[in-house]
Amino acid sequence: MTTTKPNTGFWIIAVLALLWNLMGVFQYLSTTLWADAIKEALPPEQVALMDALPSWYSYVFAVAVFAGVIGSLLLLIRKKLAVPVLGISLLAVLVQMGYWLFATDVMEVVGMSSVVMPLVVIIIAIFLYFYSKGAAQKGWLR
């Protein structure tokens, strides 16, 4: 398949995807490097939620955000490898957010507002995966 030049929207989405995923890396690093400072600012119930997370949760979080950054960079350099890498990010997001929403008491502790950000993250991860697949099918990726 020959590659074709992507439209302007592709470049806007790829740059926004990278910025979004870099914010995810910042969030990951914040919760790992500055966990104590974050916990000092939270109510005890929320600290208990964070402390009760299994050790694998942090690894899945890392896979989600770092695969997202790599996948976004691959989009920017127009590589088909972006599709499976963003797929890995999506899978990790689904595991991470699914656990957070359904295996913890976050909705009882924080309320229904605790659902908003995880849903936004899931929706964006789904979008980026399927957008990368579409970009590959249109010949924008090599």
Rank of each mutant, 00 (worst) to 15 (best):
P118N: 01
G71C: 11
S55V: 13
M107Y: 09
L33I: 04
A48I: 07
F61R: 00
L86Q: 05
V83D: 05
Q46F: 04
F102D: 15
M50S: 11
L18K: 00
S30P: 00
F66C: 02
S114Y: 02
T2K: 13
I12Y: 02
Q96S: 15
M112L: 13
F127I: 03
V69M: 09
S55M: 12
L16H: 09
V110M: 14
M50T: 09
A35V: 09
P118S: 05
S30R: 13
L53Q: 15
S30H: 10
A35E: 12
V60L: 02
Y99C: 12
I126C: 14
R78C: 08
S89E: 13
K133D: 12
S58N: 11
T4C: 03
L22R: 06
I13F: 08
V83T: 12
A14C: 05
A136C: 05
P6H: 01
L49A: 12
P6A: 01
L128W: 07
M1Q: 11
V69E: 04
G111A: 10
A62S: 06
V109S: 08
A135G: 06
L81I: 13
W56R: 09
Q137F: 05
L29A: 14
P44K: 01
M117P: 00
I70V: 15
V121E: 08
F130D: 09
V93Y: 10
R142F: 11
A82E: 11
L90E: 11
Y28S: 04
Y129E: 08
S132P: 10
L101A: 11
P54Y: 07
E108S: 15
A125C: 09
V110Y: 01
V69F: 01
M112C: 00
N21Y: 04
Q96P: 11
L16C: 14
N7L: 01
A135I: 04
K138S: 15
W34H: 15
V106M: 12
M23E: 09
Q96A: 14
I38W: 09
G24D: 10
Y131D: 07
A52K: 10
A52E: 12
L86R: 05
V85W: 00
M112D: 13
V63N: 07
A125F: 07
A37I: 00
S58H: 04
W140A: 01
V106Q: 08
L16K: 02
A82G: 02
Q27N: 14
E108N: 14
D105N: 11
F10G: 09
M112K: 15
P43C: 00
P6M: 02
L90H: 05
V60C: 05
W140T: 03
A92N: 06
Y129T: 14
L91M: 13
S30W: 09
D36H: 09
P44L: 03
T8Y: 06
A125T: 05
G87P: 01
Y28T: 04
V106R: 13
F66P: 03
K79E: 10
A52G: 10
P54K: 05
P43A: 13
W11G: 02
Y131V: 00
V15P: 03
I38S: 04
V47D: 02
I88P: 07
I13C: 02
T2V: 10
W140G: 03
G9Q: 02
A103W: 06
A125M: 08
I126R: 06
V47N: 04
K79P: 00
V95M: 13
N21C: 05
G139M: 10
E108M: 09
M97R: 13
M23V: 11
V110Q: 12
A125L: 06
F66I: 07
I77K: 03
L94M: 14
L53E: 14
G134I: 07
K138Q: 15
Q137K: 14
